[in-house]
Design a protein around this nucleic acid. Structure first.
Lengths: 341, 341
DNA sequence: CTGAAAGCGCTTACAG
DNA sequence: CTGAAAGCGCTTACAG
């Protein structure tokens, strides 16, 4: 058994007042004289009082916990990206006096459509889902009667609120930047049938071309992975563009190594840009111009929304796009300037 | 307000029994006939009952939460290592019907010696500290009256239980391996005054040399960082060893790039080993022979210990060393065999 | 096998 | 300004 904690009752007894008065004083509510309030606070510290949030929570009907649900497959070795989110969300929640509870949803539970345990056991007031769930599971989520928000992915079912990085706009900005530097032969590296975020990035690239009256060339679309996500050797034969827009930094990293091994130099022979600003962006030589996902802002918004939804169950937000930040580094050159960077 | 949940009372009313019987049935306790128990379970599912763990917790005096406390400075960009631990600990806790609550201890709170909020607010039954706290804070931790365990670091105060990777033994094994392959001129790369884990790794290297009657040479100790942890260019002049034992993978990565830029090949000209098996180990060409910290085992042990300490407040474990696993890759050659690997 | 009573530590609504 | 009473939803110990 736990050793007995100091309770409000103990303070009350010692001070000869009621525990109601203690509660009011410690919560800065009206109905206690300022002097008594100050004295109560002093004594409570002296006695080493710590509030029992469990009791408070039960009375109020709120746990002051938010669940963060991450499908197991996003927790592998290199997926530290999601942990960054978790970290940030957890930090933001503090400002609202909330805590984050992580649940990793294992494959089996996801397939068998079992409710998250944090939900079944009423551990949380709301759930932030981090990382794409399978469709059936998402459908099931509609039956969950606590607020939820999807972070970093979305679904076509408009019932759900989601917060995603603006893939489209980010690549659009990057491509505009390349064009401004004189590039007109610009390739896109990625399997445009693989994930919806790669697709959106591709469309941002395409929009930039459209706006500048640059025709889209099939031969400038370079497949980087098969439809199962397995990386392929990028085919670099025939007519090549002067700049490559890669769907992510890791692919840019692979591409640059590939180009190097063929005797090319980046950015002198080819300009290359990525997306994500993850560790690969700084491991390439030269470091990559890329788009940094705004983890901080996205996390803040996710928390704000879930807290609002807890207070107002009917609130709806839909799909919220958060702009990333273009990070300018040395992997890009003006097209008319082949002198070294 | 939350929409009202189904409670045991509701089930009781509907079935014409008391809520005590419901509680017994759902918890598989004695005192209910098997038929009634089965019927209660059926109805509770039908009614969509979810237990209110808050009420249960309050009654029992346990929150069924474990806090994971990570000092802020370990949550930066590249420290996904700690998140791996967090992940794993969280997964293991599930088996004990416990949940993990993350608290990132910010710099200010650490300096001002403020208790973690999860402690002040009684949110958790125990705390796992992940990442070295400053000494004063550790001293203060002695006054915390809930069980705690330090994960991945230790302190000389034997009051505390800690679980650390066996740095000493890991490097000892690696160095033995190099010697078995014929190396006798073996260098160590690291600032041996910088952290205690680097020091332990150095001593493992030294023990291996001792055992094989290989003299320790000052000139074979290569400083990789200053005393503040800032990386230095490693000085590679004069008499060089045939193999380098690096204190971590990132340093091995830096070293190999350095050697490459000087025109050397690894492993043909020099063998190199690292420690950690992090992303850098697979980014080097060739990939690194290194020691993988056994995150899984360390996390399991941490959880086992904290759960035991919750049940028995007097339990003591001291410093527990967990062996890492040597991962054999291609960055090492036999010394007598210069043909390619 | 079944249930009435008490209690976990708070907070809220109300009375004085 | 202060406090007695009731209640949040469970579980435990005890009585029948």
């Amino acid at each position: 058994m736990k050793n007995r904690q100091v309770t409000m009752k103990d303070i009350a007894k010692r001070m000869g007042v009621s525990s109601v008065t203690i509660s009011k004083a410690l919560n800065d509510k009206d109905g206690v004289s300022e002097e008594l309030k100050a004295e109560i606070k002093r004594v409570s510290i002296e006695m080493g009082y710590r509030i029992n949030t469990l009791a408070k929570s039960m009375k109020e009907g709120y746990s002051y916990n938010i669940g963060i649900l991450i499908p197991e497959r996003f927790t592998g070795d290199l997926q530290s990206f999601y942990m960054k989110f978790y970290n940030q969300v957890s930090k933001v929640l503090e400002n609202y006096n909330y805590y984050a509870i992580l649940e990793i949803l294992d494959k089996k539970d996801e397939e068998e459509l079992n409710f998250p345990r944090i939900y079944s056991e009423n551990k949380v007031d709301g759930i932030i889902v981090l990382g794409q769930l399978n469709n059936d599971y998402i459908e099931m989520f509609q039956n969950i009667d606590i607020p939820n928000v999807f972070l970093d992915f979305y679904t076509d079912n408009s019932q759900f609120d989601s917060i995603v990085t603006d893939n489209f706009y980010g690549v659009y900005e990057l491509t505009n930047y390349l064009i401004k530097l004189g590039h007109t032969n610009i390739g896109f590296v990625g399997n445009i049938h693989s994930t919806s975020s790669i697709q959106d990035r591709y469309l941002g690239y395409y929009k930039s071309l459209l706006e500048h009256n640059i025709p889209l060339k099939d031969s400038y679309i370079f497949k980087d992975r098969d439809d199962y996500g397995k990386y392929l050797d990028i085919e670099l034969t025939g007519d090549l563009p002067t700049a490559f827009v890669c769907n992510c930094d890791q692919v840019a990293y692979n591409l640059i190594r590939r180009l190097n091994s063929l005797g090319y130099n980046v950015p002198n022979d080819f300009s290359v840009v990525g997306f994500d600003d993850d560790i690969y962006a700084s491991l390439t030589t030269p470091p990559l111009t890329t788009v940094a996902v705004d983890v901080k802002e996205m996390s803040s918004v996710a928390v704000k929304i879930i807290i609002k939804k807890i207070k107002d169950k009917t609130a709806k937000y839909g799909r919220i796009l958060i702009k990333g930040n273009v990070i300018y580094r040395e992997s890009v050159n003006r097209i008319d300037c082949y002198s070294k960077s």
